[in-house]
Design a protein around this nucleic acid. Structure first.
Lengths: 325, 325
DNA sequence: TTGAAAGCGCTAACAC
DNA sequence: GTGTTAGCGCTTTCAA
């Protein structure tokens, strides 16, 4: 552009790169900017990346975007990235995008770093060995390969949910657990077991289900029709399962929360779309994405990226109440 | 890489680019591939883009990903893109990602083309004038700026929904309409009015609401408490609004579908998460994204990209039934 | 304060 | 069949 528009060539780079401290006269700088605006000039990113060897682009590895939770993680990451002049490309693992087996190929960009959810474990193998800085989301804090981790205080969230139910007087509790072998769900199971185990006379039964409404319903039906006294509370590993659990209860002629209480996890839009609204543990999804991106940018800038832990919060709503009788 | 690993340099390009028809010996080709695998060689995309002047990257402009519908559109587009060696970057307009006002900047990539939802109209202004091939999704078919359009037969969907209710005997119908001034919603209103108007004795009342559960509930409450005989069916512009409408009915002590029928639009996961499950019009979101990407790739290849229209389908479920008495 | 020149890694035309 | 070469648009010394 420059060569035509005004004065020089390298000068343009300096001006547009805000690196003209005392190297370019105010006059020429202004001229350059004017010309740039006039021509609608956009520096060629490919050339810049080639020259710099950095792309200012991060890869976000998530298990399918169609889960609102990860869509929100993306949103948070993208916001922070944009503020820092970075971009984010997505690698939705298996089910989502089909045959794009290679993350470095699926994203048509060279990458500076990777942010990965622990739930996309299978895709992680491919990412490892890329030699790129890696930030792990919601994973075991002693994750070794990661340059930094962003964690949610999942255990505390589950303690809050359990405490809420136990405080209401529930003693027979069933866990509708996600059939996903991942740190975050293992923590939920462990924290719930610990909380229930600490209360004399309280008992816990577990059913597992893939993360769909229908499977959640089936698992909840199993829990509610299991031989022996019926549980009075269903603790579900996420809101999707909880929605299924509510349907199960209703199918069995039970009212929520009068006959059985139900709790979820995540606080998706779904939680307030169902009736009664779900008591659930709110996970700050956007904050997770934002913190992940911030951590990655810090690592890339050789700043110390300390591990982050984000608090979570129980949101009591209509799906829980005292046990019957 | 090549220079070190085996024989030459340009040869590598030919082999890895699958352009060695009768120009490279089978032996050397094999050698190159072996070396590439050994070194874990990845061609530098930035350099390739720079050389080629094309990036094999498309921009998808959507209004916020956190709507499951657009997450699915993205998934479909990404799948087709990956199959064709393309990439997709996202530009979620306003609310989603904050200050990334410039789509060409927000996506840290140079772009070959743009796929835009008509619902992201505000962002479109920025995209226009980029001089890039543009594919419009779910927009007015006589959209001029677009090189191709992918449409849903929204009008037919609404006719099916209206026909379903009218066939069940409903005559007092209320439209819970999206407060979004966009082609797709204007079509819904028009098609519904036409269908109801064609039946003697049938009447239509309209309330509008922003696309949230809560606003849907409020609008439905207004519709159900409006002076005069109560509507027996609520036709909602999407599933989110329909979920709100169900809550409204229940708050007013009305049963769904015994006292009032409710229909949605989209067939999100939400539609089967609520109880009763929503009768709704299924929009093939992934197919929209896929068709959009296919059309864009065709345009970029100078192939004739004819406009596409995708059929939609009513899915009758538990939220509709005959009117009371 | 500005310009000239090199080179990032790749592809395509051309020479051998 | 294979190697040489030029050049994509940018940033960054280095000279002027």
């Amino acid at each position: 552009m420059a060569r035509v528009a005004g004065v020089s060539q390298a000068t343009v780079s300096l001006v547009l790169g805000d690196k003209w401290a005392g190297r370019v006269s105010e006059r020429t700088a202004a001229a350059v900017r004017a010309a740039a605006r006039e021509l609608g000039y956009r520096p060629n990113l490919a050339a810049r990346s080639l020259r710099l060897g950095r792309t200012r682009t991060a890869l976000l590895v998530v298990p399918a975007l169609t889960t609102e939770f990860f869509a929100r993680v993306y949103t948070g990451a993208a916001r922070v990235a944009a503020e820092g002049g970075f971009g984010v490309v997505l690698y939705p693992s298996p089910e989502g995008v089909g045959p794009a087996r290679d993350p470095f190929d699926s994203a048509r960009a060279s990458l500076d770093g990777v942010i990965a959810s622990s739930m996309a474990a299978d895709a992680l193998a491919a990412v490892r060995g890329g030699g790129l800085p890696l930030v792990m989301l919601d994973s075991s804090p002693d994750e070794t390969a990661a340059a930094a981790t962003v964690n949610l205080d999942i255990a505390d969230g589950m303690r809050q949910a359990a405490g809420h139910l136990l405080g209401l007087g529930h003693r027979r509790i069933a866990h509708v657990a996600a059939a996903v072998d991942t740190w975050t769900f293992r923590v939920r199971a462990r924290a719930l077991a610990a909380a229930v185990g600490a209360v004399p006379g309280a008992s816990l039964h577990t059913e597992t289900a893939p993360l769909t409404v229908d499977e959640g319903r089936r698992a909840a039906e199993r829990a509610l029709t299991h031989p022996g006294p019926r549980p009075t509370a269903l603790v579900c590993d996420d809101d999707i399962l909880a929605a299924g659990a509510c349907k199960a209860a209703r199918r069995l002629g039970l009212r929520v929360p009068d006959d059985v209480s139900v709790t979820g996890f995540d606080d998706l839009a779904l939680a307030t779309a169902v009736d009664p609204e779900l008591t659930t543990v709110r996970l700050p999804a956007e904050a997770v994405g934002a913190a992940g991106m911030r951590a990655l940018m810090a690592v890339l800038a050789d700043e110390p990226a300390r591990d982050t832990s984000l608090p979570v919060e129980l949101v009591p709503r209509g799906s829980t109440g005292p046990p019957p009788r």
